[in-house]
Simulated assay, not measured.
Amino acid sequence: MPELTVTSIQQAGACLFVVATPIGNLADMSYRAVETLQQAAWIAAEDTRTSKVLLKHYGIDKPLLACHEHNEEYVTQKILSLLEQGQSVALISDAGTPLINDPGFVLVKKVRDAGFVVCPIPGPSSPIAALCASGLPTYQFTYLGFPPRSGSGRAQWIQALADVPHTVVALESPKRLMQTLMDIAGAVKEREICVAREITKLHESFVSGGVSEVLAYFEEHPPRGEIVLMVGPAAQEDVTDEKILAMSQFPGIADLPPSARAREIAKKLGVTKSRVYSLLLKL
C-alpha cells in the first residue's frame, strides 16, 4: 500500500514546477507562468528548439534540459541532482499542460517519491479548452488520449465509447480522423460528435452534429491541424428501466445500501439518481 505523503509549497526549498504553456496563441501565457520560468534555475523542455521560440518571445534566457520520452529516465536523475543542490526546475512541453499526452510522469513520480515539492502552474490544455466550447455535457467526462492505430487495442478503444455513459474527449491525427469517425459510427448508436480543430489558432473551428453529418462535412473539407474529438453521451431515454434493474444485481452493486446503489448506477449509466432510486424502491 502506498505510504501517505504530504508536501507543501510553503515548506519548499528547491521545487519542480510543472508549467502550462500556450497551445497556439502566445498571448495565452499567464503572468505566473512567465514569472516561474524567469525564476527557475533550469528549464526542462520536451523539445528545446520549439521552446526557445516561446522563451525568446518573453525574454527568458535560462539553461535548458531536453526531457522527452526517449531520455526521461536519464534526465530525471539529472533533475533530482539539481533539486538536491537547491536549484528549482521548471518543466514545460511543446504546447499545453505537461504530462497530458506528453512526457513527465516518470519525472514527477520520482521527484515526489524523493520528497521534493511538485508545484503545478496551470494554464492551457487543448482537451479542456475544446470541451468547454463543445456544447456537450461537462458534468462528467472521460479523457482517452489518442486511440490505438490498429489491432485489438483499437477495437477495445472504440467499444469503450459505446460503454461510457458520459462525454468522451480524445485526440486524433487529421490523417486518421475519418477512419476513427467511421469506426465510431459502426460501434455506437448515433451520438452527437464535436470535432475541435486548431484551438486558439487562426483557423480554429468546431464541427458538431451526428456522426454521419460530421463525416459528410469532412469528406468535403479534409481535416487539417491539431484535433480534439469529442463524443457525447447516449441519450438518457436509451437506458431502459430493465437495464437499470439488471445493473442493480451486479456484483459489487447489489450489496450496497439503496441510496449508494442508486448513486453508483446513475453514475455508470448517465441517468438521474432519483430515477434509479424510485425503481429500486419498487423491488
Score class of each variant (00 low, 15 high):
residue 236 Q to S: 06
residue 266 A to W: 12
residue 227 I to A: 04
residue 248 S to C: 03
residue 268 K to P: 01
residue 215 L to R: 09
residue 228 V to C: 05
residue 232 G to T: 13
residue 240 T to F: 02
residue 267 K to P: 00
residue 220 E to D: 13
residue 260 A to G: 00
residue 215 L to Y: 05
residue 207 V to A: 00
residue 213 E to H: 12
residue 247 M to K: 01
residue 214 V to L: 07
residue 266 A to D: 00
residue 232 G to Y: 11
residue 228 V to G: 00
residue 255 D to M: 07
residue 206 F to A: 03
residue 224 R to G: 05
residue 239 V to D: 06
residue 257 P to V: 13
residue 208 S to K: 14
residue 242 E to W: 05
residue 225 G to S: 07
residue 205 S to G: 03
residue 228 V to N: 00
residue 269 L to E: 02
residue 257 P to R: 12
residue 215 L to Q: 11
residue 255 D to N: 08
residue 235 A to S: 07
residue 217 Y to F: 15
residue 235 A to R: 12
residue 267 K to E: 03
residue 245 L to A: 05
residue 235 A to I: 05
residue 246 A to C: 00
residue 239 V to A: 03
residue 256 L to E: 04
residue 266 A to H: 07
residue 232 G to Q: 10
residue 213 E to N: 07
residue 269 L to D: 03
residue 203 H to P: 05
residue 203 H to G: 02
residue 210 G to F: 15
residue 271 V to C: 04
residue 256 L to K: 02
residue 228 V to M: 01
residue 260 A to T: 12
residue 265 I to Y: 01
residue 225 G to I: 06
residue 214 V to Y: 09
residue 208 S to V: 14
residue 243 K to C: 04
residue 266 A to I: 09
residue 213 E to M: 08
residue 257 P to C: 03
residue 261 R to C: 08
residue 270 G to L: 12
residue 267 K to S: 07
residue 268 K to C: 06
residue 213 E to D: 11
residue 207 V to Q: 09
residue 230 M to I: 14
residue 272 T to N: 02
residue 208 S to N: 09
residue 222 P to E: 05
residue 230 M to K: 12
residue 258 P to K: 11
residue 248 S to F: 13
residue 251 P to N: 07
residue 243 K to L: 07
residue 232 G to P: 08
residue 236 Q to V: 15
residue 262 A to C: 07
residue 258 P to M: 11
residue 257 P to L: 09
residue 246 A to S: 06
residue 228 V to T: 15
residue 211 V to K: 03
residue 245 L to R: 06
residue 206 F to S: 01
residue 242 E to F: 06
residue 248 S to Q: 08
residue 274 S to C: 08
residue 235 A to G: 02
residue 219 E to Y: 06
residue 257 P to D: 04
residue 239 V to C: 09
residue 225 G to F: 03
residue 250 F to H: 08
residue 271 V to D: 00
residue 258 P to I: 15
residue 255 D to R: 09
residue 241 D to A: 00
residue 259 S to A: 11
residue 237 E to M: 06
residue 259 S to M: 09
residue 218 F to D: 01
residue 228 V to L: 05
residue 230 M to W: 14
residue 237 E to R: 10
residue 233 P to T: 04
residue 259 S to H: 11
residue 242 E to Q: 10
residue 274 S to Y: 14
residue 212 S to I: 13
residue 227 I to V: 14
residue 213 E to A: 12
residue 274 S to D: 10
residue 264 E to C: 07
residue 211 V to H: 01
residue 247 M to W: 15
residue 214 V to A: 02
residue 260 A to S: 08
residue 213 E to I: 15
residue 213 E to P: 10
residue 267 K to N: 04
residue 246 A to M: 08
residue 246 A to W: 15
residue 268 K to W: 11
residue 207 V to Y: 11
residue 252 G to E: 12
residue 252 G to I: 08
residue 257 P to A: 07
residue 248 S to I: 07
residue 206 F to G: 01
residue 254 A to V: 15
residue 262 A to H: 10
residue 256 L to S: 04
residue 237 E to T: 14
residue 272 T to Q: 05
residue 229 L to H: 02
residue 221 H to I: 13
residue 253 I to A: 01
residue 269 L to P: 02
residue 272 T to M: 03
residue 255 D to F: 13
residue 253 I to R: 04
residue 211 V to C: 09
residue 266 A to Q: 05
residue 214 V to H: 03
residue 217 Y to D: 01
residue 226 E to H: 08
residue 253 I to N: 01
residue 254 A to D: 08
residue 254 A to P: 00
residue 246 A to T: 13
residue 241 D to K: 04
residue 245 L to D: 04
residue 248 S to A: 14
residue 224 R to F: 10
